[in-house]
C-alpha cells in the first residue's frame, strides 16, 4: 500500500515500547573514548605549558610564576589535544560531561608539584596516538 508505508514502523513502535533513554533517571551513555571534560592533577604538573601551547582555543592558561593553572570550560572544545600532549600525565579526559553553569567562571588550580633537583624535560612526541 502506497499510502500507509509508515504503518510497519508505527506498529513496531507501539509493540516494542519507547526507545527513549530515560536520561536523568538513567546515566548518560558514554563510551570508553568519550571526550567529556579534562581533569587536571595539580600534584603532577610541572608547568611545562605544553598544554596551553597546544590548546587550539586558548582555553588553558598557565602562570608559571604564580603556579596557577587555569581552564576556561567555556572555551574548551574537549579535543583532547592537551591530554595527548601532556608529557607527565597530569591531564586526563573523563567521559562525564561538565555540568551547565549559571555563571561564567574560569576554573583555577594552584599547582602543588614540588620541583625535584633536576628538571626532567622530555621531548614531546607530537603524533602520539591514542
Amino acid at each position: 500500500m502506497g499510502i500507509f508505508q509508515m504503518t510497519k514502523t508505527v506498529l513496531r513502535n507501539l509493540a516494542g515500547g519507547p526507545a527513549t533513554r530515560q536520561y536523568p533517571a538513567v546515566p548518560a551513555r558514554t563510551g570508553p573514548l568519550t571526550r567529556g571534560h579534562v581533569v587536571f592533577d595539580p600534584a603532577t604538573c610541572r608547568s611545562c605549558s605544553l598544554c596551553s601551547k597546544r590548546c587550539p582555543c586558548e582555553a588553558i592558561r598557565l602562570d608559571k610564576e604564580a603556579k596557577v593553572w587555569e581552564i576556561d570550560r567555556m572555551r574548551c572544545i574537549a579535543c583532547g589535544d592537551c591530554v595527548e600532549g601532556c608529557p607527565f600525565g597530569s591531564l586526563t579526559m573523563e567521559p562525564e560531561y561538565f555540568a551547565p553553569v549559571v555563571e561564567h567562571v574560569v576554573e583555577r588550580y594552584t599547582i602543588t608539584y614540588v620541583k625535584p633537583e633536576k628538571p626532567a624535560k622530555k621531548p614531546v612526541d607530537e603524533s602520539a596516538g591514542a
Partner: peptide, 9 residues
C-alpha cells in the same frame, strides 16, 4: 502519538 513514534511522550 509519542508511542507511535517510539518515544515516551
Amino acid at each position: 502519538t509519542a508511542r507511535m513514534q517510539g518515544r515516551v511522550g
